[in-house]
């Protein structure tokens, strides 16, 4: 059970980064189905930088910029070039899915994965203040590599930034009333650029975590739809940071259960792996239809600025 919960948190981490990054973008009024692509380019960059430089933190930093730039492309297409937000998102996703194996192939001679990063160069678990010795909770919460702690703290930081600061106010206005913001003398386009670059940087951490913390290499399409699950979590959380945090934990938990079920028999029956892997999505569907109530997206999302 303890291992299950600890694993839930690990699996929730990439979702947390992606959904918090997505939250900034979407609250600013830009639909971001390209979280997937942002995570992919970041995951690739982090794996490659960590492999060559043997420095995990440097890898995080470089990947942060690459993630921001990937989202920056989405910003350019949707804000400056006034492209449709969904189409631009699809473009970014395809580009990321294509360019990462291409570059892997160019550098390492095979498109499927980058070489494994030696253990000594990777992130290690930090046992915060010896708290990991606390029975039960200790191993669940306090025996993780650094990015996980960051992920767990992030939603609360985002909550503060969005609801308690002047910049947050502009962000909300950009999403719910860009015209009002413009007449108040602030350019919603600029607010959206800033939000997307910041959101891209945050979402990049999700990809980075996957390639250099959760595993030790980049593999092709390794995000496996997590960008979309993160979006679902965002809808579950009605675009609010703290509820979204719990939605991510829930999805992490569902994923952990799924993995565990793969190796167990239920009532003497071994369910097909494919069926078990589909379970979290079935749960998602049921929850989405049955329990959430009306989630109202930011009012101007999907619309071009006038």
């Amino acid at each position: 059970m303890i291992e299950l919960l600890a694993s839930s948190i690990r699996l929730a981490t990439p979702l947390l980064f992606a959904s918090m990054g997505g939250l900034l973008c979407e609250r600013a009024g830009v639909a971001t189905i390209c979280l997937e692509g942002v995570m992919l380019t970041a995951a690739w960059t982090a794996a490659v930088v960590n492999y060559y430089t043997h420095n995990a933190w440097l890898a995080v930093t470089v990947a942060l910029w690459v993630g921001a730039l990937t989202m920056g492309m989405h910003a350019f297409l949707t804000i400056t070039a006034r492209a449709d937000q969904i189409i631009s998102g699809v473009v970014v996703n395809f580009l990321a899915a294509g360019i990462t194996p291409l570059l892997t192939n160019a550098l390492f001679g095979a498109p499927t994965n980058t070489p494994s990063i030696p253990l000594s160069d990777r992130f290690h678990s930090i046992e915060l203040w010896g708290l990991s010795e606390v029975p039960g909770l200790g191993k669940i919460l306090f025996a993780h590599p650094p990015l996980i702690y960051l992920a767990l703290a992030l939603p609360f930081a985002v909550h503060f930034a969005v609801y308690r600061t002047g910049l947050g106010l502009r962000l909300l206005a950009s999403g719910d009333g860009p015209e009002a913001l413009r007449t108040a003398g602030v350019s919603p386009g600029r607010v959206r650029y800033v939000a997307l670059l910041a959101g891209g940087a945050i979402a990049s951490l999700g990809g980075t975590f996957l390639s250099i913390s959760h595993t030790s290499q980049f593999t092709r399409d390794m995000t496996a739809g997590r960008g979309f699950i993160a979006l679902t979590a965002l809808i579950f959380g009605k675009w609010r940071p703290v509820p979204t945090f719990f939605a991510c934990l829930f999805f992490g938990f569902a994923d952990a259960v799924q993995i565990q079920l793969q190796s167990t028999t239920v009532f003497g029956i071994q369910f097909p792996v494919q069926f078990i892997q589909a379970l979290p999505y079935l749960v998602t569907l049921v929850v989405l239809v049955g329990f959430i109530g009306k989630a109202i997206p930011p009012l101007s999302i999907g619309k071009r600025l006038g």
Binding site: L169, L172, A173, D176, G177, E179, L181, G185, V186, L299
Partner: peptide, 19 residues
């Protein structure tokens, strides 16, 4: 030119708020 989801005071200071 008001943001419907924000409060009265937030709408009034919007654009003039400390950043």
């Amino acid at each position: 030119m008001l943001v419907p989801t924000l409060s009265v005071w937030e709408n009034i200071i919007l654009g003039q708020e400390p950043t």
